[in-house]
Design a protein around this nucleic acid. Sequence first.
DNA 1: ACCCTTATTGCGCGGCTGTCCAATAACGTC
DNA 2: GACGTTATTGGACAGCCGCGCAATAAGGGT
Lengths: 210, 210
Amino acid sequence: MTRLSPTARREEIIAATLRVASTKGMANTTVRDVAAEMGTSSGLIHHYFSSMDEVLAAAFEEAAGTDLANTEAAMRSSSDAIGRLAAFFAAYTRSDEDSAFQLWLDAWAEASRRPALGATSQRLNVAWQRLIASTIAEGIDDGVMVCDAPDATAWRVLSLLDGLSLQLAAHPGVIERGDVVDWAMTALEAEVGLPAGTLARPAGQRAVAD
Amino acid sequence: MTRLSPTARREEIIAATLRVASTKGMANTTVRDVAAEMGTSSGLIHHYFSSMDEVLAAAFEEAAGTDLANTEAAMRSSSDAIGRLAAFFAAYTRSDEDSAFQLWLDAWAEASRRPALGATSQRLNVAWQRLIASTIAEGIDDGVMVCDAPDATAWRVLSLLDGLSLQLAAHPGVIERGDVVDWAMTALEAEVGLPAGTLARPAGQRAVAD
DNA sequence: ACCCTTATTGCGCGGCTGTCCAATAACGTC
DNA sequence: GACGTTATTGGACAGCCGCGCAATAAGGGT
């Protein structure tokens, strides 16, 4: 019976939940599973979270929020909008390697049954869309992109990424992992008036628009 | 205690399952729910289906299969490939009005837990992709479309439809229902070298390629 | 060394799930 | 009208779930 500080225990519960959810899926992650993963009793979890819904919501927020923060950080290292979009797709490729998308799919499907989880996934999804939309808007201000509705374009790109990830998860083999990002990148390039391949090439190889 | 023929009873079970699933979602549709919906005992269901997984799979096959058949029928009424694609999107708009997509989302999410349901949704999904791909191929043969990889294009269009439907379901309000089909249509037009708006206009208003 | 706060335990409760099975009742056949 | 087939019943069974609560033990402040 090792006694931890409230914040440390909370984090451990979230970490254990993600560990279980990554193998069993969110819908099958139970209080007893998480407790067993931590090696503690199940009652402990209800001492920190008022319901299992909030445990899953907190775990999803941790996973998806970290992904978002990492991506934002990677994008900040580029000074121009084109470089930031390229960094966005590069980060997406990396985060796609583990079973990150399965988490999103579970969250969407469970949203109707688990209010807190639904609200969290909705909030983070909008954050991703805004990240794309605002970067496109910067590109327009800088005069390197052309788009009359950055918001709608961002929704389309995000939807395409989601849909392709869905098909990738459902039909491993027919769609290659690399295709997902390549296709979404090409679609975005076409929408904002960028030459094909611009976002795939490292910054040094890009033609400078003067 | 009204006694039905095996085929009639099977169909009633499937119909009752769909009725329950449309309100409670597939994941929450239980044997007892379906039995109560029919006004019979729960044991009866296992007299016709070996497991709940197969009940849900059969119900999904009925719903999605009917949609597919209706769409194919609507497409057959057009003689040219362009008209058939236009009919495809028109049919998709209609089938999207009820909660058809929620069924797909549930099926995808439950696929890992329910083998039969997963296999069924996978099979039907491929059928939809093939329907698009083969129609594009006809358009190429007829010389009215240009596309070097109809199969990949079909996957992209289907993914975009799925992704947009996902966002529509998750964020009612930010994405309009009509946008889903409009955007997917525009994407396809661009991919196969069709003038923008071609697929949205009725056949009479289309320019005849001679 | 004491005490008071509180993190943690361990289990019980009510309810839900899918599956199975003996008993029953309906229907076609002779 | 009797009989055999079989559709249908209704509940038992084992297992899982989220949640709540009294008891326990750990540890910091004094």
